[in-house]
Write a protein that binds this DNA or RNA. Structure first.
Lengths: 142, 142
DNA sequence: CTTGAACCTTCAGTGGCTAGAGGATGTAGA
DNA sequence: TCTACATCCTCTAGCCACTGAAGGTTCAAG
């Protein structure tokens, strides 16, 4: 029987986060002591590890929900899990491409800064005038 | 005199977002018509373009606030603007490194999926057991 | 003068947590 | 057995950077 604090340490998840996962239905409601404190078993530890590891790989909580569901039904075809992972891979690749363009632009900005007054600062100038950019970087966020 | 809608179209910013920027003090309060509608001039258009472009390059609103402030004082030394840009560049590079590791892992997962039942699915197996990972990917988010 | 697109304010919600207040419980040592 | 105090509990609110919707008003073209 594991306390929430032990689970927290073993998985590197904050206590509040574990309670949050329970609240949104990602973790099952655990047993409780007479006094009302949560007690977990090893299957719940496994589940939390799965969640955390998936988060580290960038999956959204919604995606993780699907993956957990698939993991709970070992006889179903695994196309879906595969598709989710492929989607994630695609997203990661898109984000990388975007960051690459940003890096190019930022490098150029920093490189060209003369170190004088802000009035002549290349960094600020580039920000003022998009047309000075060599690469495209349309979307915000992502 | 530009309406908020015109500003929105010219900068690719949603109307609500412009009002939000005003609310948090990033955009100045514009003049109003008798009926209470906002009217902008070209300096406000420039400011919004600056903000948007900076956002596209991944700067936080706080960083943009500083950059705008520097841009408003052309006689100050530009070390600070340079430092902000360098910080941003460093962040972008860190994120890229992280995404690279994730991509490696995801590729391997997807590649090894046998296409059978979820019980044998390599994707789910890797998620279950972190020790199967070849790369490190500790931090979440970023 | 009428129409209707665009504007206004206000509030709530997104994702994925994180922090804090204020109080209850569990356990190890004396 | 008592006590100290680390850990637990619930509840609420906040973070970032928006986005959407409800319900009502204004402006400009025809």
């Amino acid at each position: 029987m594991l306390t929430i604090g032990t689970l927290s340490k073993k998985t590197g998840t904050k206590v509040q986060t574990i309670r949050y996962y329970e609240q949104i239905g990602l973790m099952p409601e655990p047993g409780r002591t007479e006094g009302g404190q949560r007690r977990y078993d090893s299957s719940q530890l496994d589940r939390l590890s799965f969640i955390r590891h998936s988060r580290q790989l960038g999956f959204s909580l919604d995606a993780i929900r699907e993956l957990l569901d698939l993991s709970d039904h070992p006889n179903r075809p695994c196309d879906e899990a595969d598709a989710i992972a492929r989607r994630q891979l695609k997203q990661v690749e898109q984000r990388m491409a975007r960051l690459k363009a940003l890096r190019t632009e930022l490098k150029r900005m920093v490189h060209e800064c003369s170190g004088g007054r802000t009035g002549d600062c290349k960094v600020l100038e580039v920000l003022r005038d998009h047309s000075e950019c060599l690469t495209e970087h349309e979307e915000i966020g992502a």
